[in-house]
Design a protein around this nucleic acid. Structure first.
Lengths: 249, 249
DNA sequence: TCGAGTCTGTTTCCCAGCGAACAGAAAAAC
DNA sequence: GTTTTTCTGTTCGCTGGGAAACAGACTCGA
């Protein structure tokens, strides 16, 4: 699986791309493009949702936490998705935290504006329902992966998923943040990253990880990456029957 | 939180109960009541979905597995829910396995019949979308619980969730099955159950666990039980504004 | 240019729970 | 009844990775 075959979508968000042109036009005044960095919070669990977000080059994460402060990512949201569904369904607070994991651009729309469109257009409801279903598969597979697989396997999976959603081969994140993503301690991450670098798969710099040999990482990742990837490919394919090559590689 | 306050719903499935009477009438010929036991498979991952299922007293589980045969439950489905949403969205295969965990009654409807209703009635689409959103919270919390909490905490959570969905205080399951649910080995389950019995919370018999002191178990469970419970309460409450007391205990 | 702050590499100790194995008890089949 | 199967209780060695701690390296602001 190569990363290249998604480059068609780099310039826009997949969900937004499915909207009929006249709906896009009507949303235009309420849309803003913004550059987000990991310091920007999207939602904190149980706080009010004001905007819905459609990532372009940024990568967001759903984070689940315990009262002891442990945290693990349960799902990623990139150019293929959105966050803010709860508000569309009439829930005024988000059930968990959403953070910016990799800096980049997002489109945001005030929740009440997008909700009017959502309520009026069955196509969008169906699209988001399908997206949520896809996310369901992602959550389930992450769950079994977080339970049974080693730090090394989980890290391979995460880096590949991040690579699918970022712009280029460089991931701007610290090992501390990465540890929070895969639900491990920083020292464990440090050791595993060191091994990956020795193997030539990645290059480590302060605050940055560069993917060098994606293929090697795919080999050593657990099947969870493939399962999740196929779920998303299936979602994309359903709505883009005319695009050649996306799912056939 | 007491179990008693849901007894109103014991005789019917919550989703079905929300359907307009005329829709129920039209579905009636395609509906069957069936008694299911853990030997009956509902869906196996990647196989075709023929029926949608609405549990009454049975409890079903979503199971995620790895290629090594490890397995963990990622969500439970009881009287409050249904399985078969993928088929409604046009996916002909289920993304993961669904099994009967506790024996009991279910209502089943041929998938293509229920899909016609789903396609025609926006109310049902919205209802199922909300249900899926609720399940999302459940998956996310299960994920962090499976990652960080001890076997004892996870078992307390699971037993409470099962107790909420079964008929009475007896859970008909083996320790082997329970181990698969919480993603642990059987010996660990055996030891923890022994401790719970010593504490007077449960009674263990061959193939059966009886809940004796629910309150004590709620105290020693992690917060994950409460988080998931509140998500479901919220879902139920939204659609039952006239029912007093359900959410206020 | 220097020092404070941040990020990374590594070490040591320690334990929950996995893996494997087996004996005893209950149920089911004969 | 007796045999066979299934389920449960328990033991023990082993290990991945959690918890804590610290030194070195890089960055940036004053």
């Amino acid at each position: 699986m190569s990363k290249a075959r998604r480059l068609n979508y780099l310039n826009k968000n997949f969900i937004l791309a499915q909207l009929p042109p006249d709906e896009i036009d009507s949303l235009q005044p309420a849309m803003q493009m913004a550059r987000m960095t990991p310091e920007d919070l999207i939602f904190r669990a149980n706080e009010r949702v004001e905007y819905v977000y459609f990532p372009i080059t940024a990568m967001l994460s759903w984070i689940a936490t315990t009262s002891e402060g442990e945290r693990v990512e349960v799902g990623v949201v990139g150019w293929e998705g959105m966050v803010g569904v709860p508000e569309m369904l009439g829930y005024s607070v988000a059930p968990f935290t959403v953070e910016v994991e990799l800096p980049g651009d997002v489109v945001r729309i005030r929740a009440e504006v997008f909700r009017r469109t959502f309520d009026r257009v069955p196509l969008i409801q169906n699209l988001l329902f399908r997206y949520y279903f896809t996310a369901h598969t992602q959550l389930a597979q992450s769950s079994v992966c977080n339970r049974f697989h080693t730090v090394e396997e989980r890290m391979n999976r995460w880096l590949l998923m991040a690579h699918d959603r970022c712009d280029g081969d460089e991931l701007a994140l610290t090992q501390e943040i990465l540890a929070g993503m895969i639900g491990a301690r920083r020292p464990a991450v440090s050791i595993v990253l060191g091994n990956l670098q020795k193997a030539g798969s990645i290059r480590i710099e302060r605050g940055r990880i560069t993917i060098l040999q994606r293929e090697k990482m795919e080999e050593s990742a657990c099947e969870c990456y493939r399962v999740i990837r196929e779920a998303f490919d299936h979602f994309i394919e359903d709505h883009q029957p005319s695009v050649n090559g996306f799912h056939s590689a």
